[in-house]
Amino acid sequence: MIGVLDLQGGVVEHLGHLHALGVPARRVRHPQELDGLAGLILPGGESTCLGKLLHQTGLDTAIPAAHARGLRLWGTCAGAILLAKAVEGEKPHLALLDITVHRNAYGSQLDSFTATAEVPPEISPAPVPLVFIRAPVITRTGPGVRVLLAVGDRIAAAADDTGGMLATVFHPELSPSLAFHGWFARLCGLTVPSPEALRGDDAAWSRESWTKLAARPGR
């Protein structure tokens, strides 16, 4: 099973992609909810907010402890900032992945953009769509960290293969592509369709897909 950190941000978008892959998933808001997970996704949101809530819930120590026992981690956008060992001009949060990130490197929302890029074939043989929203940039990768993807001259995704960690500064959960979720699930030892089978976009995905699992009219 894969968990999605459920403190703030793009939680349901990740749950939707995992569901589309047939991967069992659950929300994680408390340390005990990490038990039995093969992997944990740290979603996009606001890293300052997420960092504080991680501390208040005790997940700031529980996640590194679970990671040391084999829990694989993937951070998207703000989640990548949470994983980074160094954040330019700020204190790091979980400080697990040996990268340096520069927050909001592209500017304000007016500088948010989409792109399409080639990725390593084990992720997808076809180019994948990328969504950058107030995105950070990875400005340094340490020894043992592999650059998976650069957009222009800026590093957008990196992985520590032996450590079982992945950071993407864009949002695969906001695009129709299931490629990155499939790859992470395979890293976690779960059975999912091959990259070739996942070729192209999820036909069921739409701009409103996130609403399926989002807040419903209450009461």
């Binding site: 459920d6 793009g10 939680v11 929302q109 969504v131 929203i133 807040a215």
Partner: peptide, 11 residues
Amino acid sequence: LNIQLAQMLKG
């Protein structure tokens, strides 16, 4: 993209 920024503010 603008709707998606709001999605990241959820919660």
